[in-house]
Design a protein around this nucleic acid. Structure first.
Length: 558
RNA sequence: UGCCCGAUGGUGUAACUGGCAACACGUCUGAUUUUGGUUCAGAAGAGUCUAGGUUCGAGCCCUAGUCGGGCAACCA
């Protein structure tokens, strides 16, 4: 694997890995990890990290751990742990061994803290929060050393042990590293290693009342797991000197931190905090609302793991901030679904069409191809009769020249059936078309057409008396602003109020009667749909995953 | 008036580590098509943030600047 010469260009992380491999670093082992904090549901941005970390391990024959960074019990819960596991598995990855937790290392971390104290590299500080903050200085001014900075090793050891034993209330004391209060890097100005929190942890319960900070837990966790390449996003770059400092002081396995730019998507928000706001504020139905960029939302929307992975690969990995065009995501899902999904007939906005010369009592079974992209998908029977439904948008009373569909006197083909001609139509008092009257050409049956006619348009349809009525939920982007990083007002002001529209009188062919939740279909000429989990036995619900590309719509917009 | 990153078509990434910018998406043509889908053929679109420098030669190296991002939670 690792010695395969691929022609694919390598991203900068792969270049680093291949260089390490060449130099025999870590004995040619590649070991990565996906390290989420269980404080929210994973979203498309996390997918980038998941695909990167697990993908690299796969590519180089290495391993990838799943490790929860659960050092802040106040925000974390096992609900999130489960959601994260589910999503990683859904994407098709298997973590190495059991799921791991930073909290598994609390004992070890405590020992290491003690070790740092003994080396005079850490001390207990009684300074109040506000003062600590003030003494840290600003980016342009150096900080001031704490009055407690030079306590004796013995005193620090005693105090730290008492902190652990619960002798002090929250915030009374902290453990800090002794680095350099004048460092131009704020994170090196005696960073906090442990804080007192008398709260229950979702895994360790009440056995601890002091918890390590990210900086004191993450690097050592990587080290304990012998992570060779520790990948994280750009904002942790300034933490890297501290990450390395701790590893050096403790003389432990030297994992290497490498940062890459997080994923930004147009019209999409990727912030757990804001996503939580959408859920709690009732702007969406939940974490798995199909409009949400969460993996659970995307999954419910009908996206496939393959599409997500391909999308991430197409986006690439780099160190510069960027915002990816949603069109790339949509392309990825269409590309996948086009090849894998069966076609069916569905009419979203039905209008009745009567074929006057077709016998009322006649039922015909036509043969339809399930997937023109996949012959093995076979064919199915489609019932036809004198009354059918077609899409309201497929008829125009006064059509423009480039409109290939139905209009007075025009002819079109009904897919898999006959060529029909519009003879007349009816309208109600408001001018809405209520019925289209046609005749058909008996010699034009699909597959045995002897009519010699050529028509430009082919319509999808559903036989009225055989149709199933279902509900369809059409989704649009949740926000109306493309770059949500640039806005200055509340992001909620940018919500697209028309992001969901529900159609409750959609007609579909009878083969869909027993479609199971999670099954995906292409409604011919419309888009890709997935059966929603809310579907009842009486009425199915279909979520529209994405529309088909539509050159006509594009052209008619001009 | 600090430190650290980054800057390549509309968007996202490449450029064999110095040899005269490529791929994908998007856009536009045309062909095929019983999905205005798919597929196929093709086109337009950047001279690589700016100014210097090194070099036979710079998107790649150096210097300065500009612009963008990050860093002052007992968050991660």
């Amino acid at each position: 694997m690792s010695d395969t010469e691929s022609k694919e260009p390598l991203n900068f992380i792969e270049q680093i890995i291949e260089e390490d491999l060449k130099n025999g670093k870590h004995g040619g082992v590649v070991h990565t990890r996906f390290p989420p904090e269980p404080n929210g549901y994973p979203h498309i941005g996390h997918a980038k990290s998941i695909v990167l970390n697990f993908g690299l391990a796969e590519k180089y024959g290495g391993k990838c751990n799943l490790r929860f960074d659960d050092t802040n019990p106040e925000k974390e819960s096992s609900e999130y742990v489960e959601a994260i596991k589910r999503d990683v598995e859904w994407l098709g990855y298997e973590w190495h061994g059991n799921a791991l937790f930073a909290s598994d290392y609390f004992d070890r971390l405590y020992e290491w803290a003690t070790e740092l104290i003994k080396k005079e590299k850490a001390y207990v500080d009684d300074t109040p929060v506000e003062q600590i903050r003030a003494e840290r200085g600003t980016p342009t001014e150096p900080g001031k050393e704490s009055a407690y900075r030079n306590r004796s090793v013995e005193e620090n050891l005693t105090l730290f042990s008492e902190m652990k034993d619960g002798k002090y209330p929250d915030g009374a004391k902290i453990l800090r590293a002794k680095v350099d209060m004048a460092s131009p890097n704020m994170h090196m100005r005696d960073p906090i290693l442990y804080r007192i929190r008398h709260v229950e942890h979702h895994r360790t319960g009440n056995s601890w009342c002091i918890y390590p900070t990210y900086d004191f837990a993450h690097g050592q966790s990587d080290s304990l797991e012998e992570i060779t390449h520790s990948l994280c996003t750009l904002e942790f770059e300034v933490h890297r000197p501290l990450y390395n400092w701790i590893i050096e002081q403790l003389e432990i396995f030297p994992s290497r931190q490498i940062e890459f730019a997080r994923l930004n998507l147009g019209y999409t928000i990727v912030s757990k905090r804001k996503l939580l706001q959408l859920v709690e504020g009732g702007y969406v139905s939940g974490w798995d609302d199909p409009r949400m960029p969460t993996l659970s939302g995307i999954r419910r929307r009908g996206y496939t793991p393959n599409a997500i992975k391909n999308f991430i690969h197409k986006v690439g990995i780099a160190r510069r901030d960027s915002i990816t065009d949603v069109a790339l995501l949509e392309y990825s899902i269409r590309e996948d679904l086009n090849k894998t999904t069966n076609r069916v007939m569905g009419v979203l906005d039905p209008v009745k069409l009567t074929i006057t010369n077709y016998p009322e009592d006649r039922d015909e079974e036509l043969t339809a191809i399930n997937n023109p992209e996949d012959e093995s998908a076979g064919t199915r029977k489609l019932p036809f009769s004198n009354e059918i439904f077609i899409e309201r948008a497929d008829f125009m009373e006064d059509p423009p020249r480039k409109f290939f569909r139905l209009g007075p006197g025009r002819e079109v083909r009904l897919k898999y059936a006959y060529i029909i001609k519009c003879e007349d139509f009816k309208k109600d008092g408001d001018g809405n078309i209520t019925e289209i009257i046609c005749t058909y050409d008996p010699d034009s049956k699909s597959g045995q057409d002897t009519s010699g006619k050529k028509v430009k348009g082919t319509l999808s349809w559903v036989s009225a008396k055989h149709a199933e009525t279902v509900e369809v939920r059409l989704y649009d982007r949740l926000f109306k602003t493309e770059n949500l990083n640039e806005i200055e007002d509340d992001f909620l002001n940018h919500l697209n109020t028309d992001s969901l529209s529900t159609l409750d009188n959609v007609k579909v062919e009878p083969s869909l009667k027993n479609a199971q939740a999670g099954s995906r279909f292409q409604f011919e000429r419309q888009g890709y749909f997935v059966v929603d989990q809310d579907s009842g036995d009486t009425k199915k619900i279909f979520n529209r995953t994405v529309t088909l590309r539509d050159n006509w719509a594009k052209q008619s917009r001009k």
